[in-house]
């Protein structure tokens, strides 16, 4: 499963594509089952006057929702660990909690294959 992430051009905010609009939370991202649908959506989403660094990320099911598989993408979707009040994690919410838990599970249980960096 995939989602589309980018940084908004004007302020760098991390944004996720959802049916023609950019959303600021991972929990609002449109999820693509099929790779070709995802590729087509990226082509539509990547408007250079709106976003930079637009690409597909892998997403995997978690307990009751979804989380990015790459650790880097989890950091992007939540915020820096050293300043818990900065970034999207400051707002809290189910999607943030889920990603944070996902990262805890992946790291402490040593499930190496769960986390993949985008190549």
């Amino acid at each position: 499963m995939k989602a589309i992430v980018a940084n908004r051009l004007i302020d760098g905010e991390v944004v996720y594509w959802n049916h023609g609009a950019w959303k600021t939370r991972f929990g609002e991202a449109e999820l693509f089952e099929a790779d070709d649908a995802a590729e087509a959506a990226v082509a539509q989403a990547n408007v250079p006057t709106q976003v930079v660094d637009c690409y597909l990320i892998d997403v995997a099911p978690e307990a009751d929702g979804y989380a990015p598989t790459a650790f880097r993408e989890r950091v992007k979707a939540t915020g820096p660990q050293n300043h818990p009040q900065h970034g999207k994690q400051a707002e809290g919410g189910h999607d943030i909690e889920l990603i944070k838990q996902a990262h805890g599970i992946a790291r402490s249980a040593g499930r190496h294959n769960l986390i993949k960096l985008k190549k």
Binding site: N7, G12, V14, V52, K76, G79
Partner: peptide, 13 residues
Amino acid sequence: RLMNGLYLQLHAY
């Protein structure tokens, strides 16, 4: 932008 010290990082510029 790089000539002016401006990078794009994970969360912002």
